[in-house]
Design a protein around this nucleic acid. Structure first.
Lengths: 226, 226
DNA sequence: GTCTATATAATGATAGAC
DNA sequence: GTCTATCATTATATAGAC
């Protein structure tokens, strides 16, 4: 059971106990979920459980500090990804290494629900928005009848599919999950590219009917059953 | 805090306590997750907590019985949906009423991970497979280079998007969540139909490149970073 | 700063009265 | 069949020694 070294790659002994606890918590939260106990976190940080409360006061406060740190690391990964832009949405996050921790932590936050998960989803959407707009402008991506709705749905779909994949992998560590993503990438990337490029439906009727339905002035929504 | 009546619409007093407990558990598991306590379930069923253990032995056994019952109800909904087939995958599940409980329970099972969630996903995939094959045969749906991979990814994507929507709705009951789905259907169905009909990418290069990449005999996977 | 020992609350499971 | 009372476990949080 090794001591966590954090994303910076620095020696554990160089960090204050407070930072070691925070990094261990991020690691444990990613591997075991936010129900990971103080005992487990303390063991990984190499300290006693009581010291966690001493430094952070409560589990909610520790969680908040971990959220902030992961958001900071996510921005660093994003900044790095902007330097050499990759064609695929969120691809930077699924690379192994430091970003594995970040991706899995964000998946855990969404999984746990609440304000934290919502915030991460907002950040993902905000970051994708200008990229999507530029892609539409350059002609790489088709325009939408409702850009904002499509953007949100794409983020939900993409993160949702990752979350389901994550949940169906029996208790993997962050590194193991990202490794399994790469091992099975063909089964994911091929259908994804197919669907994104060619679509699924060969006929236009369903879409055209729905667009026509939305044009109807009366009735704000389709008649609800029962 | 009303007494649960179950999906059959029968009076609570007509059921044995055992069945009332099971129905209350399904309801509580959907509303609060599988961490819902015996006390909560017992209150909803109108019995004492001890009676739950007396009848089911353990929480795992109660859970297993709830899984079976929900699977049975899901098959009933599916059977009903086959009678008047709807164009859209899983649309039958998102209708209000009895299917609300079933949908949310399945989402909870996926959310909790483990064998139960995996089984439900398998059932969903198995049910969609012949429909998809028939749709390809009739020309409604485009053929895929890997039908099985596309089918699986579509199920993951669809259920994943629903799960994320569910998790981002602050602690809704099953009924409330399905109601919110219908209220916000335009923001979901329009982009979904757009993406399914027209796709997202306007150019073919990414897909063609990836298909070409898969043709390479050597290297089972792309060179991994690091 | 760090640890040990403990308080407090909640859970699932058990035992036995009625 | 049903309930009340209790146990054992685990969790976070606290208090105080060093």
């Amino acid at each position: 059971m090794r001591i966590a070294t954090g994303a910076g790659g620095r020696e554990a002994s160089d960090l204050t106990a407070r930072a070691r606890i925070r990094d261990a918590a991020i690691s444990c939260f990613g591997d075991d979920g936010f129900d990971s106990s103080f005992r487990t976190i303390a063991m990984r940080a190499g300290v006693s459980p009581g010291l966690i409360t001493h430094h952070f006061g409560s589990k909610a406060a520790l969680r908040a500090e971990c959220d902030s740190e992961v958001l900071r690391q996510y921005r660093a990964v994003k900044f790095d990804a902007i330097a050499r832009p990759s064609a695929h949405l969120l691809e930077g996050l699924t690379a192994p290494g430091a970003s594995a921790t970040v991706l899995v932590y964000i998946l855990r936050a969404i999984h746990a629900g609440g304000a934290s998960g919502r915030d991460f989803l907002e950040h993902l959407t905000d970051d994708a928005r200008p990229i999507m707009a530029a892609s539409v402008a350059s002609g790489l991506v088709r325009p939408s009848r409702d850009e904002e709705a499509r953007l949100r749905y794409l983020v939900y779909q993409t993160m949702g599919a990752l979350l389901v994949q994550f949940l169906m992998t029996p208790s993997p560590t962050a590194e193991e999950f990202v490794a399994s993503l790469h091992a099975g990438q063909r089964d994911t990337i091929l259908p994804m590219l197919e669907l994104l490029t060619e679509g699924l439906l060969a006929r236009r009727e369903m879409l055209d009917d729905y667009v026509e339905f939305l044009r109807e002035p009366e009735r704000p929504a389709r008649p609800a059953p029962e």
